[in-house]
Simulated scan of single mutants.
Amino acid sequence: MKAKNVIFFFAGCLFSQVCLAQAELKSDLKAFRPAESNQPGKLFPQVNMEGKVKASLYAPQAANVQLDLGGKKYEMTKNEAGLWTGESEPQDESFHYYQLNMDGASIPDPNSRYFYGAGRLGSGIEVPADDEAFYALQKVPHGLVSENFYYSDLTKSWRRCFIYTPAGYYENNQSRFPVLYLQHGSFEDETGWVNQGKANLILDNLIAQNKAKPMIIVTDNGYALKPEENETKGKGQGISIFEDVLIKEVIPMIDKRFRTLADREHRAIAGLSMGANQTMRIVMKNMDKFAYYGGFSGTSNYPSTDVIDPNVFMEGKFKNGTEVNNKLKLFWLGLGSKEPAPFPKSVGAFKSMLDQQGIKYTYYESPKTAHEWLTWRRSLQNFTPLLFR
């Protein structure tokens, strides 16, 4: 074989291998795999690397079934055995709530694990993210998440909070730890930061890498009403007394039951969306109890995008910028780059007020995420390494 023919032969082989590899990659992107959020052993729902979601439901008597995901309904088709299947358009990386619609009735997917969100227990699906390692279950020492019931004299009702204690907490009974009080968003509850937010895994991984101080995390239910309103009104209605519950009941209880460093220099508070609004009001009224604050996708001027008058806003708590700087070691704000209106302008107006008052703050923007759990997971990942330093 002549030299020129040999060159063309090998060039052709190389080109064929490249084409084959590209075809396999493209095929792999389209290949569906069971979602991480499925019930054990369930093959559906499934996701692929394009972010598409495929759902399945056995309903031989149904006339119509739809996948309801991301504000859009996708038609599903039924085979001869009565099994319905359908898939969505590509979804953003992150955790998504969804449901199935069968003959006009919205129902949870029996194949998915259930999560409390949108004011109900329902289905959720995890669309893998490129940076998911920071919240993945890894081979590192793991802390413990415990469920704690307590009776609230303020609400005259039983309440619940979850407490994350870092790895080694129960092996060394002499060490004391700082505490982060971490709040959920609207129509979610105290389970959100563990089940959807994976806060315990995020801290396990950060602590194992020496990027964050070992700390206790407390997640309580942000819905707390006066006793008479608790009996007659639903969640989100009535006058909230959550601030009093946290300050007068939860913090003293945690300091009594756990080995905490019970002073403001070792106590932080943060929240997402509604929780950011709540915790900002709490920290500014109780700077004798907290030295660190984090607001994820929310501020206390939400939903207003108007110019903020620091002399009036929150009873003038931001009027003296020097005092705020002296008392708070960290004022941290986070937002997704794709957040819907009015969040960007609302947070922007708040930042302008901080700049005007000379108040120091740290701002983080999560790339390519909206008002969703990946924004808040990344916020927690970037916020906690700055605590208790």
Results as ranks from 00 to 15, higher is better:
N301H: 12
K317G: 13
G124V: 08
V307P: 06
N311I: 00
E265V: 01
S273C: 04
G298M: 06
T155K: 06
M253D: 13
V307L: 07
A31V: 09
F242N: 14
T191L: 00
M1F: 07
L100F: 03
K360W: 04
E323R: 15
G271T: 07
F242R: 05
Q381P: 01
V18S: 07
W158D: 10
L261P: 08
I216M: 03
A268G: 08
A199I: 01
L57Y: 14
A55D: 04
L328F: 10
D288Y: 01
D355E: 12
E132T: 07
T299V: 13
L261G: 08
G12N: 09
P108R: 01
V53M: 15
V18I: 15
R159D: 08
I202Y: 01
F149L: 09
P34W: 02
W158I: 05
A55F: 09
S27A: 12
V140H: 04
F258V: 02
Y364W: 13
R377T: 02
L180I: 09
S152P: 08
W376E: 03
D255A: 01
R267F: 03
A3S: 12
L69Y: 03
K345F: 11
K72P: 00
G238K: 07
S175Y: 09
L69S: 04
R378P: 03
W332S: 11
E93H: 01
D28T: 10
N205L: 05
M280P: 01
P45E: 07
T369E: 08
K317R: 11
P90W: 05
L25D: 13
S37F: 05
T369I: 03
D28V: 01
N205A: 07
S157R: 10
G119H: 08
G117D: 15
A262S: 15
N205Q: 03
S297G: 09
Y292E: 12
D103F: 02
R377N: 08
S300A: 13
P128G: 03
G336F: 02
R264W: 12
D244Y: 06
K156C: 15
D220Y: 15
P90F: 05
G275S: 11
S112D: 04
S106N: 12
I107E: 02
P344G: 09
L57W: 09
L206E: 03
Y135N: 01
A270I: 09
T375R: 14
E50H: 08
V179I: 07
F290I: 10
N79V: 06
K213L: 12
K351H: 05
S94W: 01
R120V: 13
Y361A: 14
R281C: 06
T305F: 07
N200D: 14
A341S: 14
A136G: 06
A341T: 11
Q39C: 05
F44Q: 05
D288H: 03
